[in-house]
Amino acid sequence: MSEIKKEPIEVPGATVPFFTYKIGETQYYEFDTSKCGPPEPMVNAMAGLKLIDGPDKKLVMINHKKPMGLLAKIEENYQIEEEALPDGRVKLVFGYKPGASEQAKLDDSHCEG
């Protein structure tokens, strides 16, 4: 398996670097907010989720803990896979949910949790 080549990408509203890469037919967008405090994880997740407009795109978020406020806000709108990383961080992969992702209120990045 060849190494994944991650390319930097400009994401409007983001406060951390975003990268994009392809695995098979799926385009991934990835960011790391594990060293950020609130509201940055929420702000960057909302900016990144705007890129997920079809089943062939996914957003990867690396964070220092499970972002409960974010998940409460958007869990109905996206498929979410969670993985605990060996160093204690959390990796979340958000996928498109037909008919639901379009309903997400992504301009509201205010954190309740």
Rank of each mutant, 00 (worst) to 15 (best):
H110S: 14
M61I: 06
F18C: 04
M46E: 07
V43G: 01
G95D: 09
A100P: 01
E3A: 13
F94P: 05
S34H: 12
P86Q: 08
A84N: 14
A47S: 15
P17C: 06
I4L: 15
M46F: 14
Y28F: 15
D53S: 13
K57Y: 00
G88Q: 05
E25I: 09
F31L: 14
D107M: 07
G113H: 06
T33E: 04
M1Q: 06
T26E: 12
D32M: 00
T33A: 13
I23L: 08
K5R: 11
D107Q: 10
A47D: 11
D87W: 02
K91T: 11
D107T: 12
I23D: 13
L92M: 11
E10R: 05
P67D: 07
G37P: 00
E112P: 00
K6A: 13
Y78T: 05
M42E: 12
T26I: 15
P98F: 09
F19Y: 15
K6S: 10
V16N: 03
Y29G: 02
I52S: 01
L85Y: 03
K5M: 09
P17D: 12
Q103W: 00
L51A: 07
G88W: 01
I4V: 14
H110T: 15
H64T: 06
T15C: 01
V16K: 01
F31Y: 10
D87R: 03
L106W: 02
L71G: 00
A45Y: 04
F31H: 03
I52K: 01
G48K: 01
G24D: 13
I4C: 02
D53W: 05
E83L: 10
M42P: 03
M42N: 10
M61T: 01
F94M: 02
G48V: 04
D108Y: 08
E30M: 09
A84G: 07
K66C: 11
P8D: 07
L85R: 06
G88L: 10
Y29N: 04
I62M: 06
L106A: 11
K50A: 12
K97D: 10
G13T: 07
G99S: 09
Q79E: 15
R89M: 12
E40W: 03
T15S: 13
L51S: 04
A14S: 15
P17T: 04
P38S: 13
G54D: 14
R89Y: 01
L49S: 07
P38G: 03
S109R: 03
C111M: 14
L51M: 10
G88S: 13
K35P: 00
K58G: 09
K6I: 03
A104S: 07
A14N: 11
K5W: 06
E7L: 10
G13P: 10
I4Q: 09
T20R: 13
K35M: 12
P38W: 04
K73W: 03
E76N: 14
Q79L: 14
V60P: 02
G48E: 04
E25D: 15
P38R: 13
R89V: 06
D108P: 08
P67G: 07
P41N: 06
V16S: 05
I80C: 04
P39R: 06
F19G: 02
G24T: 10
H64E: 11
Q79C: 02
N77S: 13
V90P: 04
K97E: 09
T15P: 00
K5C: 05
L51T: 02
I74P: 05
Y96N: 05
E10F: 11
S109A: 15
